[in-house]
Amino acid sequence: MKLNAVGAILAALALAACSGSGGGIFDGSGETGEAGISGDEGSIEQSALRDYEPDSAEYFANLIGNTIYFEVDRSHITEQSVQVLRHQAEWLSRNPNYTILVEGHADEQGTREYNLALGARRAAAVSAYLTDLGVLESRLKTVTYGKERPVSVCSFESCWSKNRRAVTVVEQELGG
């Protein structure tokens, strides 16, 4: 299974930057695979970012945002996460041929078994929230990874806060 939560950060960057023009964005990260500073001093190249199909899983992961974050040892949906989940629910309603797996994760500051149970709580909280917003329960599954799959690997709060997360993974049904 591919765990993609970096997407949330990219999505946040993209959304923030997209509000201005329809043109490409150059953020210097080489995200386009082409943009870069040429050998000539002072010359800057610009190229277009890749567009995602609005109904694709990549669009959901990168532009809707598939990840929300939790407080230490808690599993309630924070105010900051409400908007992301609303967008998720809207997209999922527009795209009924996708199945949904919500992964719950915890940071490394906890024992293994407890963190598995805590990750399950977080995944269940997201699942319940999406269901309340009209997503069919039959489309939703949850899984916990506890502290087994961090995305940020330092041992400080700056990383731990990114690991206390739930990721909504969508997959197109075969023939859908």
């Binding site: 149970a117 399950a120 709580r121 949850t142």
Partner: peptide, 9 residues
């Protein structure tokens, strides 16, 4: 063992 059903373990 532990069994998780929904949010509850």
């Amino acid at each position: 063992l532990s069994l998780t059903r929904g949010a509850n373990t």
